Amino acid sequence: MRPAFSVVFLTTLCGAAQGLLLALVVVQCLAASGSVPAPAAAFYIAGAAAAVVLGALGLLASFFHLGHPERAWRAVAMWRTSWLSRECLALPAFLALAFLYGCGHLLGWPAGAVLVLGLLAVLAAAVLFVCTSMIYACLRFLQEWASPLTMVNFVLLGCASGCTLATLAAACFAPGLTGLMAVWACVLTAAGLVSRLASLVRNARLHPKSTLQSATGIRSDKIRQVSRGFTASAFNTREFFHGKTPGTVQTVKYGFLLGAFVVPFVLLASSLPQAYAAAGPMSGLIVLLAVAFLIQYAGLVAERWFFFTEARHPQNLYYQRAA
């Protein structure tokens, strides 16, 4: 498939926002139970603000994927049957609840009410993860996507990047939590690497279910394709094939494995001694965590690009091959 960068940024930005909000609410639940020291309100306010900004940027990016942005409101019309329509409803709901959650901490609302808002935002984030991933996992004719690993990867990669950003927020506003958040980010990053490697191994073993024989109904073994059907570029040749060389695709694959998983994990792990020893915000630690998040996000952009390119649309058996 041809990657659409509007969708690449939509899914990666919103995934990080969802993971960040989930981390904030988990911390608040632990603080309420006395398991961890209660962080300053600035930790929640800054985190919620970052989640809203990231989600809003993802929503803005999605408009560039529309042929007629002025008709965007119609995207919700098929919510009974379309995962895309459900995503269009879940994302604004998540943003609204994340905004109210941050406002609750900023304005000093009762802790119980703010926690309820946070739990509702977590529910909205979970629904959004399901809707976004099912847009692709429900397409049975694209074997690379039609797997439970698609949803697992969307959830783990979003939570990993969000938790890395939450670690940065802790270093700035709640130094006592930085070590714990860094451990969570390492665990989620490692889990994301395992699940993504599992999907790569699975997809490498797939074989096309369609052939020239099954497409034409001609059972001869000597069928030879001499034309792709078009003498010039057309929708079928533009939208269902990425047009990149196998070498480029392989380079991107190894690049995202390093950028999204290996390098951030090493940086997060290397921050642990300083994180646990820090008595207050430290500029060196903050810079290290900021670099870890930026590298991880760049790796996730490459991962999502690869996610689209590795999906082999059956129509390419005809339109992308010529003798």
Rank of each mutant, 00 (worst) to 15 (best):
F230M: 14
F230Y: 15
F230P: 00
F230E: 11
F230Q: 12
F230I: 03
T231N: 12
T231E: 14
T231V: 13
A232C: 12
A232W: 07
A232V: 14
S233Y: 02
S233W: 08
A234I: 06
A234P: 06
A234E: 13
A234S: 15
F235R: 10
F235C: 10
F235G: 03
N236S: 10
N236H: 08
N236I: 06
N236A: 12
N236G: 14
N236M: 10
T237V: 11
T237R: 14
T237Q: 13
T237S: 14
R238T: 12
R238H: 05
R238C: 05
E239S: 07
E239G: 05
E239T: 00
F240I: 01
F240M: 04
F240S: 04
F241T: 04
F241D: 02
F241P: 03
F241M: 01
F241V: 06
H242F: 00
H242A: 14
G243C: 11
G243E: 10
K244A: 04
K244L: 04
K244Q: 02
T245I: 05
T245D: 15
T245M: 09
P246K: 01
P246C: 01
P246V: 04
G247R: 04
G247W: 05
T248H: 02
T248P: 04
V249H: 08
V249G: 07
V249Y: 05
Q250V: 00
Q250C: 07
Q250R: 15
T251W: 05
T251D: 01
T251L: 15
T251A: 13
T251G: 13
V252P: 03
V252G: 03
V252C: 02
K253T: 15
K253W: 09
K253P: 05
K253C: 13
K253V: 14
K253N: 11
Y254H: 10
Y254C: 00
Y254S: 06
Y254A: 00
Y254T: 05
Y254Q: 01
Y254D: 08
G255Q: 03
G255C: 02
F256R: 07
F256C: 01
F256N: 04
F256H: 15
L257G: 08
L257F: 01
L257V: 10
L257C: 08
L257D: 05
L258V: 06
G259M: 11
G259P: 03
G259V: 00
A260V: 08
A260F: 09
A260Q: 15
F261T: 11
F261K: 10
F261E: 11
F261H: 15
F261V: 11
F261R: 09
F261A: 15
F261P: 09
V262P: 10
V263Y: 08
V263R: 07
V263S: 07
V263W: 10
